[in-house]
Design a protein around this nucleic acid. Structure first.
Lengths: 237, 237
DNA sequence: TAATTTATGGCAGACACTGACAACTGACAA
DNA sequence: TTGTCAGTTGTCAGTGTCTGCCATAAATTA
């Protein structure tokens, strides 16, 4: 476990400093009214350097969410193959939040700050959705792989699309100031996931046995009961 | 029914010319490689004028979709109140496509061309999703109004979110060149909507009777029966 | 200490987008 | 027909995001 080396540590430090400065300025003056020059000046680096850390101005606010998506994907890959797709997605989501909770206090508040900002700023919100869409493709591929289906099949697309929709509805709460804590966020997300489970037929997220194509209201196998409930299960990678 | 007047007609003509020129150039050289100056030059107007018609460069490709969203909302408002939310949304969608089908040949091919481009260009795709999100709020408000619920309630959010997810999956087909015709598009969208209907419990999209809030860890099972069950059959004239 | 790799700053420039002002063009009434 | 008014357009100057290029300074390795 050798430390990352001075160079790498310096980079991480600069990255976080840029994110913090940007988040503060955005909250203070608004996203549009804040220029990249101001962010760079606040951290005492050149604007050119800013763009070496973040491809666009919105990326600096979205980068934490991007990290979250990466974790989600990794956690999904780690779920056992017997779990039905939607259940696995819900549990992976829980694991992701658990991992976030294990971070520094500064990390946690930074994440929440960024989420509030994203939800309140149309430009950032759009960017966030864009990222989620990109991630959706990877999730679809992973679900298809788990279930031995083609990524072109309708079902995995539908399952993932429905899942991300539910997550989005759960995340909306960040915009209305009712979220002060990561556990508040967990609670909201779980509520929506439960609503989804209650609304769907058992076995909806798996192809009907003996049915090659993605369809069929098959007999209820796996995903019936309170799947999304088990909030702990902290698996690390 | 008096004609719109010369001034208005000229404006519409310029607008369509800009859209057509942009669509051609985007398809030819790619979205990023095309500058606003080129589009303006192709229609022989100043770049400044371009921005008087479209707020941003991506808007020129998205404007037809925006029109579609407006129609969808209007059609939803026209659906009878007895229809369950999800059914009403599906039928409104069908009405929208039907209205598009009634347009000029040029109109139809332009629409499909724009959709292909959006689906194939990440930047445009993101913009399209952003638009859909904005529209989602209006759809939520309308559904909440129909059902006599608060727009803050979880259920209308979930219903609309699930609906737009399904539509998005259906629209994906535009990217893979398998759509040559608006009726192809209708077919794809209906397939996904049917998959959704099959996956969901009857009555899922209406609050359980006697249950004021649409949230709480309520009574387990669904409510009545077959409210939303009637597949994609609903065509209006 | 010398050689190599990598982060950084400064600079010029392309492109998206905006505000202000002046010139032009349909709409409409006397 | 003519004059007035309102809406449309082009020009110009400017801001801000983002990129390529090259020289410099700092960290890593030998």
């Amino acid at each position: 476990m050798s430390r990352p080396g001075l160079r790498e540590r310096k980079k991480q430090k600069t990255r976080l400093a840029l994110i913090d400065a940007a988040l503060d300025l955005f909250a203070e003056q608004g996203y549009d009214a804040t220029t990249v020059d101001q962010i760079a000046a606040a951290v005492d680096v050149s604007p050119r350097t800013f763009f070496r850390y973040f491809a666009t101005k919105e990326d600096v606010a979205l980068s934490l969410d991007a990290d979250g998506h990466e974790i989600l994907l990794a956690e999904l890959a780690a779920r056992p193959a017997e779990e039905p797709p939607f259940t696995a997605l819900g549990r992976a989501m829980n694991s992701m939040i658990t991992i976030l909770e294990q971070g520094d206090t500064a990390d946690r508040s930074r994440f929440l700050k960024a989420r509030e900002l994203i939800e309140a700023t149309p430009a950032l919100f759009a960017g966030g959705v864009r990222m989620m869409m990109q991630n959706e493709r990877l999730l679809v591929a992973e679900i298809a792989r788990r279930e031995g289906m083609s990524p072109d099949d309708l079902l995995p697309h539908f399952v993932v699309s429905l899942f991300t929709s539910a997550i989005r509805v759960g995340l909306e709460a960040c915009g209305s100031g009712e979220i002060n804590d990561l556990s508040d966020l967990t609670r909201h997300v779980e509520r929506v996931l439960e609503l989804a489970e209650r609304s769907l037929r058992p076995g909806w997220d798996r192809p009907a046995p003996g049915d090659g194509t993605a369809s069929g209201a098959g007999p209820g196998s796996g995903s019936g009961e309170g799947t999304a409930g088990d909030g702990g299960a902290g698996r690390t990678g």
